[in-house]
């Protein structure tokens, strides 16, 4: 049993320690808002926050998050149900098409704004280029982030470092279940 906090609730996960957080949350907790896209930290669909920092959960084993706090898309809105400024802006700009990548996009955008209340276009490029939208709604995502930045009044100060994620990508690429061809991982900081 591995104990973690998910969306402010303490839960016990009965999974093998190397199970990626993504699958533990989806299959054990039935929180399916976070998506599986690539299994290789290449697309960002699986993005959650670990202690406030965005991570790619398809390559993050539950063992490394034991005792820590995880936020999923289901936990982004205010407890009273009011949507987060990013979610509101997403509706306002009519961002999603198929919608599959959007949980990850929103988690990356929420983390960006928590850290950087007035991101420039370059900041947005850096923070969001790890998230693929196959429907190509990048222009709308950019506009929505800027709109959310102007709407958002409360921000927390969040430290970021992507060491955890990088370590896990390296680990999975070197494991038996990784792809059997050499892989170059995009060097994308998940947050500036």
């Amino acid at each position: 049993m591995i104990e973690i906090t998910v969306n402010n609730e303490t839960v016990n996960l009965d999974v093998e320690p190397d199970t990626p957080l993504l699958w533990a949350v989806r299959e054990q907790l039935n929180l399916t808002g976070t998506k599986f896209g690539c299994g290789l930290a290449q697309c960002g669909a699986c993005t959650m926050h670990l202690d406030g920092k965005p991570i790619r959960t398809c390559v993050t084993p539950v063992s490394v998050v034991a005792g820590r706090s995880v936020t999923t898309i289901e936990g982004v809105a205010h407890p009273d149900g009011e949507l987060h400024a990013v979610q509101k802006a997403w509706i306002e700009q009519q961002v999603p098409q198929c919608g599959y990548c959007q949980s990850g996009q929103i988690m990356s955008a929420v983390a960006l704004l928590a850290n950087n209340p007035a991101p420039t276009d370059d900041d947005i490029d850096v923070a969001m280029s790890g998230n693929i939208c196959r429907c190509g709604m990048y222009g709308r995502i950019r506009k929505a982030i800027k709109q959310a930045a102007s709407m958002s009044s409360q921000r927390s100060s969040i430290q970021t470092d992507d060491a955890v994620q990088k370590e896990q990508v390296d680990r999975i690429l070197n494991s038996e279940t990784g792809p059997d061809i050499p892989v170059e991982v995009r060097n994308e900081p998940v947050s500036s």
């Binding site: 989806r26 399916t32 808002g33 898309i73 997403w90 961002v95 919608g99 599959y100 949980s103």
Partner: peptide, 26 residues
């Protein structure tokens, strides 16, 4: 506004991969 968008910003939109059937194996 598109009717499907609200469910696509709060994680509640259900895609094929999200279906949960009791007793399900993978």
């Amino acid at each position: 506004q598109r009717l499907d968008i609200p469910a696509k910003v709060d994680g509640s939109a259900q895609f094929g991969v999200d279906v949960i059937v009791p007793g399900m194996k993978y």
